[in-house]
Design a binder for these strands. Structure first.
Length: 581
RNA sequence: GCGCUCUUAGCUCAGCCGGAUAGAGCAUCGGUUUUCUAAACCGAGGGUCGCAGGUUCGAAUCCUGCAGAGCGCGCCA
């Protein structure tokens, strides 16, 4: 990475290593603690660093004049204009403006890839997300994980990883059997029978539509068929239809998966035996009885002997059942088999996105993947807290029992793809989110999606305006005729932020926190709107000035690079970059 | 009871592998349009960073305890 922040950080590390070699500081000095602060409000320079404070604290000879030493060393950095050292020891760094503008020009070498890097070196990683049971449509509880997984995937791609977006289809087990039964009931209803849907069955009206398809195709033929054959048929038909609709719904917000893995295939291919043997060899399985859980409604609990996984030896707080007391594998056992399957597909790393209701499941899964892979942090699990919808100042009430979840399709019809995608990643996924459906539709600065897209449209309008003048038409061809003396402090501030995009993108990936991107967007767009309005009072701050070619050219260069960065950020989030609004 | 996650301005949230005076938007109040998009901008007020200790040059950030909220806790997935 050769953005200005990565470069200076690297140079500081080299400098620190030299200082260590010269026996000026002791071994307690930790290079990782060097901060490069480019975005704090309190900073006094272009960037600031705690470098000197750290050095001071680790001096071997307390009388050594480290400050003077640093002044002299940093003087050798050709891209630094000057530094100022605060009383507390922060080093405030000012860059050479020529250097910064040179960096700005580099953006145009390959604008579509600006900010991308190859840290991933083509390594394969697997990101599994959504994986909603194919028993009903995608709804509000799935959306946050869906967008998060997709955005994380695209971030990893831009960091040079080969990403597989994967969906695990739970197409087996008792819930699917119940689904098949519910569908069959709807089918008999179409054939004139009166039905009642039990509380554990699926009441959703989508099953009526699916039943109609079978009825249109086969008439009443299934009423008298062999029961086992019928059950199997209705299960499969239901899963296929529902999955088809899930795919269509996800497509509405531009989410596509590279791979769907069926639980039934994992079972058929017997991966579970492999995991079973692995655990047996390591003596991590035993027949035992779990303690009574302490929840409220555990009245019917009675002790039962079953096969347990000794997950408490690893990361978990208690052991977990691997087989049911009737000898069947538990869901956890099947899921372990699935993770084994992912492991042998040679991924460098697995990432799972889970809803908050699975938090209690994390440690057992990480434990077993540790056994499977032999690596400590092979599996990373990112969790999403719930989203509550607010409309007209009230929470929209949802009940699983009544099946009245707000579906993705409904939300999409209401607010559209851009708003869904933007808002779903705009806060830290581990924090519960309230989404106000009225606010996200507003076309004003209350709505950050609009606010950022509007900045893009404004910047585009200048670029388009410039094309009305022959001399500015192909300004990029004359990129070397710039004159940076015409730039204001507001513009330098924006240029610094534009140039921090590659660093930010890399940091976002490292921390797996896409909301950093929306924060960045709102920050840089706010500065842009602010600058724009200054041009109303101060003619010299306006971009296009027919009579001053070099000045206009220079401004067009930075404003076009601003557009490039916004476009890259929009691209990662997956929202539109409109030139007109 | 145990585990995990969360608690920052009236509201919604950033900031968290320790760093300078804790930031933004909304809401409230007051200003700015003959101009490249005012769907915008500028300014003001607003804080015991849940509480209490600890670690240190320095804590919203790390550790411990406590309180509150959410999720979960054997044959559901």
């Amino acid at each position: 990475m050769n953005d200005y922040l990565s470069i200076i950080k690297k140079d500081f590390i080299v400098l620190a290593e030299n200082i260590i070699k010269k026996n000026i500081i002791d071994n307690n000095f930790n290079i990782d603690n060097i901060s490069i602060d480019y975005n704090s409000k309190s900073k006094k320079g272009d960037i600031s660093t705690n470098f000197l404070i750290l050095l001071r604290n680790n001096l071997i000879d307390k009388n050594f004049d480290i400050q003077d030493f640093i002044y002299k060393e940093i003087d050798k950095f050709e891209y630094i204009e000057r530094i100022e050292i605060s009383n507390s020891g922060f080093v405030n760094i000012f860059f050479q403006t020529n250097y910064l503008f040179k960096k700005l020009k580099e953006i145009f070498i390959n604008p579509l890839n600006y900010g991308n890097n190859n840290n991933g070196k083509g390594h394969k990683i697997n990101i599994e997300f959504v994986s909603a049971n194919p028993t009903g449509p995608i709804h509000i509880a799935h959306i946050r994980g869906a967008v998060l997984g997709d955005v994380l995937s695209s971030i990893y791609e831009k960091n040079g990883y080969d990403v597989t977006r994967e969906y695990y289809v739970n197409d087996s087990g008792s819930q699917i059997a119940i689904l098949g039964d519910s569908l069959f009931k709807r089918y008999t209803e179409l054939n004139g029978k009166k039905i009642t849907i039990n509380s554990n069955e699926y009441p959703g009206e989508y099953l009526i539509d699916i039943a109609k398809k079978i009825f249109d195709k086969d008439g009443n033929k299934w009423l008298d068929e062999n029961l086992e054959k019928t059950k199997k048929y209705f299960c499969q038909f239901a899963v296929n239809e529902i999955l088809k609709n899930i795919k269509l719904d996800l497509k509405l917000i531009n989410i596509k998966f590279d791979k769907f893995t069926n639980e039934s295939d994992i079972i058929v291919d017997n991966y579970i035996d492999k995991v079973f043997n692995l655990l047996k060899d390591q003596k991590l399985l035993y027949e035992g009885v779990l303690d009574k859980p302490q929840g409220e409604d555990q009245i019917e609990w009675e002790p039962r002997k079953q096969l347990l996984f000794k997950s408490s030896k690893l990361l978990d707080d208690k052991d977990r059942p691997f087989k049911k007391s009737n000898g069947e594998w538990t869901y956890f056992a099947n899921d372990s088999a699935y993770h084994y399957n992912k492991f042998i597909r040679n991924y460098k790393k697995l990432i799972n996105i889970w809803g908050a209701d699975h938090i209690g499941y994390i440690n057992r899964m990480k434990s077993i993947v540790e056994i499977i892979s032999g690596k400590k942090d092979y599996l990373y699990i990112k969790t999403c807290q719930i989203v509550r919808l607010i409309k007209d100042d009230n929470f929209i009430k949802m009940s699983k029992r009544e099946g009245n979840f707000v579906t993705l399709k409904q939300i999409h019809e209401h607010i559209g793809s851009d708003a869904i995608r933007y808002f779903m990643i705009s806060s830290k996924s581990e924090t519960p989110m309230d989404l106000n459906l009225n606010k996200v539709l507003e076309k004003n600065k209350d709505n950050p999606v609009f606010y950022c897209q509007y900045a893009y449209a404004r910047a585009s309008s200048v670029i388009n305006k410039s094309k009305e003048f022959d001399k500015f038409k192909n300004f990029i061809d004359n990129i070397d005729k710039f004159n940076i003396s015409s730039l204001s402090i507001y513009e330098w501030n924006l240029i610094l932020k534009i140039l921090s995009w590659p660093y930010l993108l890399n940091q976002t990936t490292h921390l797996m926190q896409p909301h950093k991107i929306t924060n960045y967007l709102e920050d840089i767009c706010s500065d842009f709107h602010s600058f724009w309005n200054r041009g109303k009072d101060n003619q010299s701050l306006r971009i296009i000035d027919e009579n001053h070619y070099e000045k206009t050219l220079t401004k067009l260069i930075w404003i076009d690079s601003f557009r490039i960065v916004l476009k890259r950020a929009f691209d990662v989030i997956g929202i539109d970059a409109p030139e007109n609004m």
